[in-house]
């Protein structure tokens, strides 16, 4: 996976999380986000990651992660075990997004979920003019080797939350600069022009 993918929205997520929170990062990769949150916000962080190599790298950064599949690794957590559960650029990789969402809303007080917006103008144009599965900076894979099996748009997610009864506390739509280190947020017609959506969901 490309290095740049991992840093998407870190600045926004870091801003969102209060000091000293208990945080679970699902699909934590090499633990960079949790390490950053530990440094900047003194959080108590936990990670779940399917790649054993990444779990090893995370540990070298002082991040405690378990090798597990998100789709099956959540049921052991008690209700409200975490202040925040983060699902960053991962929902589109899960086999059962609705189940995962329900589980993380159960185990977390708040959920931060961020994903690439599939209805972004570049993706639409890619499909419309080239007639091919879109390949962009945020979606760099070929159709046959992509881990992204449940793509969605910002609008899709809003509808999903309304239908399933998840209450949205905050919505941030953003684009990133070339190395993803900073995110710009002021976007008109976000479902068309925002590369990513970020939602903070709160338990009622």
């Amino acid at each position: 996976m490309k290095e740049t993918i991992f840093n998407i929205g870190y600045d926004l997520i870091t801003k969102e999380i209060p000091r000293g929170s208990r945080v679970l990062d699902l699909g934590c990769g090499d633990g960079e986000l949790l390490a950053e949150l530990k440094r900047k916000k003194r959080i108590e962080g936990f990670g779940i990651e399917i790649s054993p190599e990444s779990v090893g790298i995370a540990l070298s950064k002082g991040v405690f992660a378990c090798q597990a599949d998100i789709d099956e690794g959540l049921s052991d957590y008690k209700d409200n075990s975490f202040d925040y559960v983060i699902l960053n650029q991962t929902i589109q990789n899960t086999k059962r997004p609705e189940y995962v969402l329900r589980e993380i809303m159960r185990i977390g007080t708040r959920v931060i979920i961020s994903f690439p917006n599939f209805s972004h103008i570049l993706i639409r144009m890619n499909l419309f003019f080239r007639g091919k599965m879109p390949k962009t900076k945020s979606l760099p894979y070929e159709w046959y080797d992509t881990p992204n099996i449940h793509m969605l748009s910002i609008k899709d997610f809003r509808t999903f939350c309304r239908q399933k009864g998840f209450s949205i506390e905050k919505e941030i739509n953003f684009n990133t600069n070339i190395n993803n280190s900073t995110s710009s947020k002021k976007i008109l017609f976000p479902n068309l022009f925002a590369m990513y959506g970020l939602f903070v969901l709160k338990k009622d």
């Binding site: 090893g56 378990c66 075990s81």
Partner: peptide, 20 residues
Amino acid sequence: KQMANTLRGCGRRVVYLDID
């Protein structure tokens, strides 16, 4: 793996790895 999952459920800090 079952132990690691259960310990996570208990709120313990766990690192679990299955070495190939």
